[in-house]
Write a protein that binds this DNA or RNA. Sequence first.
DNA 1: TAGTGGTCTAGACCACATT
DNA 2: ATGTGGTCTAGACCACTAC
Lengths: 249, 249
Amino acid sequence: MKGSKFDNKMSPGGLAFQPLYKQVEEHVTQLIVEQRWKPGEMLPNEFQLAEEFGVSQGTVRKALNTLTQSKVLTRRQGVGTFVSEHTGHQALYRFFPVVEDNQAPQLPEAEIVSFQLQSPSVDVAKQLDLSANEQVVHLSRKRLINDIACLLEDIYLPEKYFPGLHEMAELPHTLYHFYQLNFNLTVHKTTDRIKAILADEKDAEILGINKGDPLLMFTRLTRSLEGKLIEFRVNRCRSDNYHYLVDLD
Amino acid sequence: MKGSKFDNKMSPGGLAFQPLYKQVEEHVTQLIVEQRWKPGEMLPNEFQLAEEFGVSQGTVRKALNTLTQSKVLTRRQGVGTFVSEHTGHQALYRFFPVVEDNQAPQLPEAEIVSFQLQSPSVDVAKQLDLSANEQVVHLSRKRLINDIACLLEDIYLPEKYFPGLHEMAELPHTLYHFYQLNFNLTVHKTTDRIKAILADEKDAEILGINKGDPLLMFTRLTRSLEGKLIEFRVNRCRSDNYHYLVDLD
DNA sequence: TAGTGGTCTAGACCACATT
DNA sequence: ATGTGGTCTAGACCACTAC
């Protein structure tokens, strides 16, 4: 018997047809979201998946390669296919765009300034698409490169996606890995919007600069693998000796 | 006879082996640089290219698809494979990251402020990797969204890559398409470095803001398809009602 | 109707990592 | 020696576009 999980035919209503490899891609993503394989774990090989899904090995390969390009999976020749984890140098640099001028990129330390459960402001609620009664965990951090404070982060996390977070005693530096391990939320895409502002008295004090100095301010909206809006950040970054680096291609 | 242009074997010195599809990819890129097919022109179909290169159609397909992902080629089902042109909405938005707050992205107009051949400053020469005696064309522009000035651009182009540019009377708004048409230079990759600064008197006057207002300042280094450093830009952007938008994934 | 790219399959062989 | 992903091929069939 050759039971195909997927369908190759146009649906009767004239709805969108999806090629098999695309269906496999979405199915594998769904299985990861459902934790059939957890971050760091190995998937079955291409032939096993092909049999399970009722498609050919080449079709599975195309789907897995696409998911590798979008960094959902990691493939290693001779070893296997793994669910990507937010660890390792590459993954850590992936979402940290701030670089010291004339220096190679370097990973920052993090110091927690405050941490509390609260009702979101109107703006935060709007950004995260929350209704009036939903709460957020507000985390404020200072980040240091080479022991010098360069960045202030205000991070807002919907309590509904991070249940119990506000009662935890310790948080690690690598938040995105922490989300993945503890709440099954894998950061997949972010959008940053960058503006220039003037440092107020508080910013100036924490960052060791002067009031009125120009700062980079960037807000970040983060979506998980399953498309949830899981994080809103407001960042203020010293611009005297640091910049935001981005490659467009 | 089955003359293969390419070689599948490891070179004797133990040098880097390249798979066939990668060799095809680079060869096609080279042919575009050499203008065997110009921007907008159609390539032969997969079977013709496969025969010419002495590989299978599937190998050609893989190479062409990769080049489509990196936007060197454009493929249209039922029509053919074309060398990408820097025209059309998509291509124009591709390298313009400034957006009005709370608005959909919109294309700006351009007004030329000054335009001259000059010796580069030390910094410009260093950024573009020019030796002391090489000259640059310096173009200064003002950009407007909805008839409001929002961005000042200082653009530096090595004269050696743009021969005769400084004698041209008129320049179009869409510079990247202009480079492609007139100098066979296709913009392929850019790196932006973003900082915050304070507007000086001149910036303030041209942008219609106040001296000391915060501005986004971003520098851009641009590489062509063949890897030449062809452009250095210094941009100053109003931050009161505009921001720099970037997706990280 | 003819020609193009898009999808899917099947199978051979290679390179790499582990045991 | 075994098992994995990587490369390459050959061929069938489909979907879209243009004439």
